[in-house]
Design a protein around this nucleic acid. Sequence first.
DNA 1: TATGAATGAGGCTTCATTCAT
DNA 2: AATGAATGAAGCCTCATTCAT
Lengths: 233, 233, 233, 233
Amino acid sequence: MNSKTPSAADRIREKKKLFLNREQKIIDAALALFLSDGIDRVTVSSIAVKAGIGKGTVYKHFLTKNEILVRIMLDYEESITRTLAAGIAKAEAGESGAAAKAYFDSRLQRPELDRLVQHLEVRLIDSEDVAPQLEQLHLMRRSNEDSLNSMITRLIDRGVLEDVPPHYHYLACWALAQGAVELCFSRSWNYRLDSEELMKFITGVGVTIGNRGQYRDPSKVKSSGSKSDSGKS
Amino acid sequence: MNSKTPSAADRIREKKKLFLNREQKIIDAALALFLSDGIDRVTVSSIAVKAGIGKGTVYKHFLTKNEILVRIMLDYEESITRTLAAGIAKAEAGESGAAAKAYFDSRLQRPELDRLVQHLEVRLIDSEDVAPQLEQLHLMRRSNEDSLNSMITRLIDRGVLEDVPPHYHYLACWALAQGAVELCFSRSWNYRLDSEELMKFITGVGVTIGNRGQYRDPSKVKSSGSKSDSGKS
Amino acid sequence: MNSKTPSAADRIREKKKLFLNREQKIIDAALALFLSDGIDRVTVSSIAVKAGIGKGTVYKHFLTKNEILVRIMLDYEESITRTLAAGIAKAEAGESGAAAKAYFDSRLQRPELDRLVQHLEVRLIDSEDVAPQLEQLHLMRRSNEDSLNSMITRLIDRGVLEDVPPHYHYLACWALAQGAVELCFSRSWNYRLDSEELMKFITGVGVTIGNRGQYRDPSKVKSSGSKSDSGKS
Amino acid sequence: MNSKTPSAADRIREKKKLFLNREQKIIDAALALFLSDGIDRVTVSSIAVKAGIGKGTVYKHFLTKNEILVRIMLDYEESITRTLAAGIAKAEAGESGAAAKAYFDSRLQRPELDRLVQHLEVRLIDSEDVAPQLEQLHLMRRSNEDSLNSMITRLIDRGVLEDVPPHYHYLACWALAQGAVELCFSRSWNYRLDSEELMKFITGVGVTIGNRGQYRDPSKVKSSGSKSDSGKS
DNA sequence: TATGAATGAGGCTTCATTCAT
DNA sequence: AATGAATGAAGCCTCATTCAT
């Protein structure tokens, strides 16, 4: 009998799942439209159409349009955080450049998305309706920052990195990554064909930013004296 | 007598000057509003109010709102071009890092303006009106690019820079500068007080990007002796 | 039970009906305003007020203001087409003047509307939006034209009408009807009281336009003798 | 001495002439633009440019834009009046159809201008600023009307025309001419190549409108015995 | 006197949000 | 709960007219 007439609790659970599914649908639709049409041209109506639901329903999930945007930002930041955490773990385990590498890779993996999020942030800053969510975003970032700080401090102590304030290192990295993302979309440059190689070059720069006393082309590093893992061999 | 009764030509010249003054007033007003209120919140009406003129007058100077935006972009790009040209000249004269230095300095001199221009570009791309002006913008950039290419090629030949395609060098620089600008405004970072020092650090990174086989903290560079750690190992 | 709890389909149908009602309301409001205030003085806003709805609602039914205008034209042309078709049928059945009569009657029945439509057409021609709808309008007219051509050709063959190209007949009719409509509104003429009789007179002219023996090339008229009843003398 | 230093009166006369020339220039420019671009798209500014003068100067000649339009109408009506007067004179001299012929010819000579004037009238009616000029226009027309009335009355007395109220005759003519003009511009008709022949046909209809024995009250048409004037000849 | 820069009312259209069904 | 029709504030742009030079 249970299998035939699902309990009230079952039905509620079912409904919740459907509800959450729909929420994801909305986000996906919004994201797809933002990427394909540009932020300006996406309306709540078009999101609803793309998601295959009614416009009113969107407002059952998000109080305002801005909440959709901020949600996309949060989702993205979470994924960055996860990747970065893994990178930091690796770095702590000895691979000194791993954190920077992971960071670059995650941001450059979907540069169009990274860039979208940057632009969304510009839109939303000073929007009172999503101020709390933006605060949450900042908290996540600061938490990441703390982890980076600790890690970098240790690398400085071990003599791997230049002895400048720790945030110099990761902010320089952040800046380069930021710029690299924009680079993918700038229409002004002549050379854009070999962007993969170019990104490797830039990542190389990023990974070694602030390395003590040296820069090495990462593609040529095989054995070496400076890497921390040299001790392992 | 001439001084008492100005000729018709004189009066026309006078009028033109007034007209151009007003044009500058509009641009200044628009710029101020963009920087203080955000691109979204600036209307033609608010620009007119800020400039102290009527709404219709704006349209005597600019055919569309977009033309004001693109004009701001062009003005800025011109100033960048001038600074860069001076830097390139210096670099040709022997100071190998001068071009990169000049470039960073000019972009970081008014980072809020640099950033505004970036965001304006995102807005305007795909706007059919102002397409010609955007093309002009790209032409300016490509011209700069050509100059950089020549210069970098020479530096590579002289063994100063890594032997990678020349544009790797300046695009990495561009990216870092781009990111550095954004960094000035990101609200997520804890440390922003000593941004001047930070920018010096980043500029240092930029200036030595791709230097052959080495990175040197610019503040510590005195004598050379590259690849210093090779001896240590 | 069905009657108590209408199905979803029922409700949707109900809604659609309401929606279409509202559409008609907009058209009626627009029409009333055009007739009373003149095309120039009617704004979308005033239409909305007259229809008792919000300005934005108008745009749920019509993409542009022009689409309201073109819709009025199409509605009118359809009614003309119906009347004309009936007239042509009668004419085929033997009443030779019936088509012209029907045409005149239908255009003169609401001359103010007929005239409005003429003026709307002048406004809309060259409007790129609504170009498709105007094409549709022309198609309707050409279809009417074909019917008239066939009919007139037969009347010519039967010797009822002068043997000139068929379109001479109906274009002359069209012109006279067109002018008669304008006549109703010209404010320059003294006599407008007995316009009904006058319209009968004109309709009479229209009905006999091109009747055989009626028309003489003015350049060839010298003595008479060509009249149809000349055989009697 | 007179020839060398023109008197004040001479100079004033000279100026007046220049002033009137300019007025004509404005009218010509406006007319050309109306015909080429459509009434809607002509601005005072464009008129000034076309006339080769400043916008402000236009307002030295005409108090409002509407006064330019009404002036075009008056000029046209005057030319019609002249032609018609000549036609009436001929008709009085015995050529019974001459007036109608003259009228048709003058209106169909520049159908685009005739039509423009019609549309201008629709625009201006109810415009308070040019009400006096419009009244003047109506006076001209009524004067023409009186002449026509006299003439037609005589033709009726002579048995040339049907004995219906005189204005039936000329209003029918007016209507047909009006329609013929529109016909020249309607885009819906297939056959427009041989418009000259067509216009002759229509003019023929117009010239014989209401000729005795031509018109039959359609409601009374059964058999007929026409050709009343044959006996007289 | 001729000019054209300045003006601002007013038109069309968009779209986030609400709410009755 | 889901819907989408309705709303109206707000934005961009036009152009007849004015007026200081």
